[in-house]
Computed example of a mutant assay.
Amino acid sequence: MCLFLATVLGGCQIGGSTVSEREGYFTWVDEQGRVRYSPITGAANKDANTDAGEQREPDAAEESARSGNGASPAPELQEETEYTLENYPDADQLEKDGYVRPGERQPYFTWRDAEGNVRVSYYRPDTRSDIEKGLVEPPVQITEASVYHAGPAGAGQPPVEGYDPDAFAILGIEASINDFFTRFSATCCESMDVLSRQEWQSGREFGVTLSGGSVTHPFLTGTSPYQLITLPEADKHSSLVMRLRSYANDGVFVPSLVFLDEKMAPLRLVTDLVMDFTPENWHRRGYLEAWVPAFPSQGERWLVLFTREQDLEGQTVLETGDGPKKIPHIRRGELGLMQVEE
């Protein structure tokens, strides 16, 4: 027995070099911080200057061996190299997958924990845009609305071939959009109280209050309290976009806007604003919000805020966890105006 053990030990010493010292193997550290040795496959085809000890990403077989389950590794998926109409990759889906194609590994990074062990963490690339990440303000979207302008539509342009000026009368159409604006202008707005005007304030949101003490005017759309506001000078702001908020308080004021020239004659009327409602939270009230442009370079000198009788007949419905919540439209209210873009 002693002779046998001596023979065995002698044989081990003859070929007793460690695995890390043998040719054809490389050393790497797994995600648990353990040192591993793996044979170099295809070493004969590698560049002679390549260092056999250089770390590389473990392949599927090595990952299976690390797991310790003993099962044969699944064959690695290979990406299609010839595309047809059936297997052509979908760009949107590829973007959602972080531009990791089928057969490719998920990106990963290595790091060292507090105990000095090397760890590996896999991650999905973030393909969101800067706007989606909140790093850049999204572009302003002008709120949809009904807009009426002074003068006939397409003024200054030659009529199209076959134009008939009596077409509306022949078709029995009594009034056009321009007729409505003309009739509205007949009731607005030379008699408004200029002394109660409110100056435009740049750089911050400023408040506009329509209360029981506000002046009223008999608009074509119904008598309403109003607030006259001076717009910025054209040499300072040729055009701008304003953010308009109407804050809820036992109801909400639904605004319409009319833009006047320096002689108080209407140039543009904006009604039926498709405003979004933001519910209240612990530090502010709920509000309706709209984004409306103004054009001082085109002669718009004054802004008038008012409401219509038909708006007072409606209500805003908000979906809540307890079911629909109805917010009535009222004649008085508090609004906030702020220039957001030039």
Rank of each mutant, 00 (worst) to 15 (best):
M242G: 08
F253R: 02
V254E: 14
S239Q: 14
A265C: 03
I229L: 01
R245I: 01
E262V: 11
F259R: 00
F259M: 14
R245W: 05
L240W: 10
M264Q: 06
D235H: 06
K263F: 11
L244W: 11
P232S: 09
L257I: 08
H237C: 05
K263V: 02
E262P: 02
Y226Q: 10
V254I: 09
L244M: 06
D250H: 13
V241Y: 05
V258R: 02
V252P: 05
V252H: 13
G251L: 00
L260W: 08
R245Y: 05
M242D: 01
N249Q: 10
D250T: 10
N249I: 01
R243M: 10
R243K: 15
E262F: 07
D261A: 09
V254W: 14
V252E: 02
L257N: 10
G251S: 04
V258W: 07
G251Y: 12
Y226K: 04
D235L: 09
E233N: 14
P225N: 06
V254H: 13
F259C: 02
M264S: 05
F253D: 02
S238E: 14
F259I: 01
R245L: 01
V241F: 04
L231F: 10
R243D: 04
I229C: 05
L231H: 12
Y226H: 08
V241C: 01
F259E: 07
V258I: 08
L244A: 13
L260C: 05
Y226I: 08
S246P: 01
V241G: 01
L260D: 12
L228C: 11
D250Y: 14
S224F: 09
L257S: 07
S246C: 00
L244P: 00
E262D: 15
L260T: 08
M242R: 09
Q227R: 15
P266K: 06
D250P: 00
S238N: 13
F259W: 06
R245F: 03
P266C: 11
R245D: 02
